[in-house]
């Protein structure tokens, strides 16, 4: 049991900073069209060096929770490559 929750010890300045950072994660992604698509492409192409993945079945999402942003990726693997393909 935590007697002093994290929030109980933080001052308004820290809370403001944390809230702002979270807001800006969402704002910046929302205002740049194609951001998630580009990120998805970048992720798939670097994963492709190690794994043969199911591109269509790949799901990428951004979750902004209580105190941080989280990128959640679900990438179905078809097979693992025998050798890492360096560019």
């Amino acid at each position: 049991m935590r007697l002093f929750g994290k929030a109980g010890l933080r001052n308004p300045r820290d809370i403001a900073k944390e809230r702002l950072k979270l807001m800006l994660i969402q704002d910046r992604i929302q205002v740049s069209p194609g951001f998630m698509e580009e990120l998805r492409e970048a992720l798939l192409s670097s994963l492709g060096k190690y794994l043969d993945v199911d591109r269509e079945g790949t799901e990428l999402s951004l979750e902004v929770g209580e105190n941080r942003g989280k990128l959640v990726a679900s990438v179905p693997i078809k097979s693992v490559k025998r050798r890492v393909e360096h560019d």
């Binding site: 300045r13 403001a16 702002l20 950072k21 800006l24």
Partner: peptide, 13 residues
Amino acid sequence: RGDMLSVEDVLEI
């Protein structure tokens, strides 16, 4: 007093 964002905080963001 920790009641407001500092110049450094704003710059960092």
